[in-house]
Amino acid sequence: MQTVEYTQEIIKELQRTVDLINDVEVERLVDGILEAKKVFVAGAGRSGFMAKSFAMRMMHVGLDPYVVGETVTPNLEEGDIFIVGSGSGETKSLVSMTEKAKKIGATVAAVTISPNSTIATLADITIQVPAQMKSGESSENETIQPMGSLFEQSLLLLYDAVILRFMEKKGLDSQTMYGRHANLE
């Protein structure tokens, strides 16, 4: 297969995956962000990179998001939202964070492949991204890609779609966002 053919297959996989995401739960996430005092995001590995990208875009639309684990992240409180992306929904450090967020009284949103996972069952909002698990175990949504790539790519697309919906609800456009872009680069 040529590189362009791989790219075309990846795009087909992404289309198939995002078509299966429940828009009602995504809308609940958008509303949860709008209603929250502070927004916290978390993920491990490549899912963590997607969370950081999401936090950056939230900053661009005027929110004050925080990435769990960064040195400038404040304490989570009741009335905040904690958004965790985890394909398996079982990553130990993320399970621990989710349990603590629940105990504190924050709204918990899980984005995961596994709606019956520990993190998903603790969550107030659960968005299933029906991608193949990185272990390669059989699923209805097979992929040619290695490990968790399909989930991670879908996660980035979902987070960008949430930003677009947020922008629509707040009457924002890309031009407004440029004013908040980093200027010390």
Rank of each mutant, 00 (worst) to 15 (best):
M1Y: 09
T3D: 08
Y6K: 09
Q8I: 06
E9W: 08
E9H: 09
E9N: 12
K12D: 14
K12P: 04
D19Q: 15
L20E: 15
L20W: 02
D23K: 11
E25P: 00
E25A: 12
E25H: 12
V26I: 15
E27K: 07
R28V: 07
V30A: 08
V30W: 04
D31Q: 14
G32C: 08
L34F: 03
A36D: 10
K37N: 14
V39P: 01
V39Q: 05
V39F: 11
V39E: 03
A44W: 00
G45F: 09
R46Y: 13
S47V: 03
F49M: 14
F49P: 00
F49N: 11
A51D: 06
F54W: 11
F54I: 06
V61W: 03
V61Y: 04
D64H: 14
D64S: 13
P65W: 15
P65N: 11
Y66Q: 09
Y66P: 00
V67Y: 03
G69D: 13
E70C: 06
V72C: 07
V72D: 13
T73R: 01
P74V: 13
P74I: 15
N75M: 12
L76P: 10
E78A: 13
E78K: 15
G79T: 04
F82P: 00
S86G: 03
S86V: 05
S86M: 07
G87L: 08
S88G: 14
E90H: 11
E90M: 09
S93R: 12
S93C: 07
L94S: 03
V95C: 08
V95Q: 12
S96C: 05
T98P: 08
K100Q: 13
A101M: 05
K102Q: 14
K102M: 05
G105V: 03
T107I: 10
V108T: 02
V108H: 08
A110T: 05
P115R: 14
N116A: 06
T118L: 10
I119M: 09
L122Y: 14
L122K: 14
L122P: 07
T126H: 12
I127E: 02
I127H: 06
I127G: 05
K134Y: 11
S135P: 00
E137P: 01
S139C: 12
E140G: 13
E142C: 01
T143Y: 09
I144P: 01
P146R: 06
P146G: 02
P146W: 12
F151E: 06
L157E: 08
Y159H: 11
Y159L: 09
A161K: 04
V162L: 05
V162Q: 06
I163Y: 02
L164R: 04
F166M: 15
K169G: 03
G171H: 13
D173Q: 10
D173M: 06
Q175L: 10
T176C: 05
G179W: 01
R180D: 00
H181G: 01
A182T: 08
A182Q: 10
E185A: 10
E185P: 07
